[in-house]
């Protein structure tokens, strides 16, 4: 009697589990279909079709396809610049963020002060202003930097301030016991940092840093405003304005940004699952 009961209850649990899996599958399928429909609607809106419903004529937006064909390559060439400036900026930002985070956790007043001062100044002013500062204000002082360098400095400084918080959380996530174990083995503070604390803190910080990189690729569009960096946005605005086809130009740029984000998000997801199934 007891045996059959047990048997029944397992198969019941199994049934519930299968039902849950089925519901999840159905949900995902529905979301997929809905995305496809939304996508088709979007395409339809820009398809340039004409409809007559009784007395009314409906027209969807029509795009200048010859403009698109002619200028697609010109805009696409901005992708490289966008990725280059984002990558250099994120590397610079990571370095700054690490030092800012170490300063924030430092017991040495000047380090702590420099770190908090930097973060406060950057967070207290708009990114747009910071970018113009490097492109327009510095030349007034006789400091003329190339577009790429100015862009990397501005974006890097800005993101570094925000990312320092991520790094600080990463460093604090490493328990006191880890440092004590390293010290008891005779490690110097530098060895403890390099061998024990940083590897664990970085692992903690990688997923949020991925998010930062993805939003950096889009914020990098702001440097186009200065006219000196020929990335995606700058190119789109340039050809769009010149030929009064801003709509087409911006749509092309938008598609590029969106695709880039989708690809980077996918890669980030892969990295995260890899980290998750690893050793921790």
């Amino acid at each position: 009697m007891a045996l059959t009961e047990k048997h029944e209850s397992t198969s019941h649990a199994e049934q519930l589990y299968q039902a849950q899996l089925r519901r999840d599958r159905i949900f995902r399928a529905n979301v997929g279909v809905s995305w496809a429909v939304l996508f088709l609607i979007l395409i339809f809106l820009f398809s340039g079709q004409k409809f007559e419903l009784g007395d009314f004529t409906f027209k969807t937006i029509s795009l200048n396809t010859s403009f698109i064909v002619k200028n697609l390559w010109f805009i696409a060439q901005g992708l490289g610049q966008t990725l280059l400036i984002s990558s250099l900026s994120i590397l610079f930002a990571m370095t700054l963020a690490l030092f800012a985070a170490l300063g924030r956790l430092s017991a040495f007043p000047p380090f702590y002060a420099v770190s908090t001062f930097y973060v406060s100044l950057i967070r207290g002013t708009p990114l747009y202003l910071q970018i113009f500062f490097f492109f327009l204000a510095l030349p007034q002082l006789g400091i003329v930097l190339s577009g790429l360098v100015s862009g990397v400095l501005a974006l890097g400084l800005n993101y570094g301030a925000y990312m320092s918080e991520t790094f600080r959380a990463g460093l604090s996530s490493v328990g006191k016991g880890q440092r004590e174990a390293a010290m008891a083995l005779g490690m110097t503070p530098g060895q403890t940092m390099r061998r024990v604390v940083l590897p664990q803190a970085l692992r903690f910080a990688i997923p949020p840093m991925g998010n930062d990189f993805i939003s950096m690729t889009k914020d990098s569009a702001l440097v186009s405003a200065t006219g000196f960096v020929h990335e995606l946005m700058w190119r789109a605005v340039k050809v769009g304005r010149a030929q009064f086809n801003n709509l087409e130009a911006l749509i092309i740029a938008a598609i590029f940004y969106w695709m880039m984000t989708l690809i980077l998000t996918y890669i980030q997801g892969k990295i995260e699952t890899h980290l998750a199934k690893g050793d921790r």
Binding site: Q200, R203, D279
Partner: peptide, 14 residues
Amino acid sequence: TTGMVFQEFNLFPH
């Protein structure tokens, strides 16, 4: 000269 063993082990997880 000393080795230490902690209550919470404190092995390096990475």
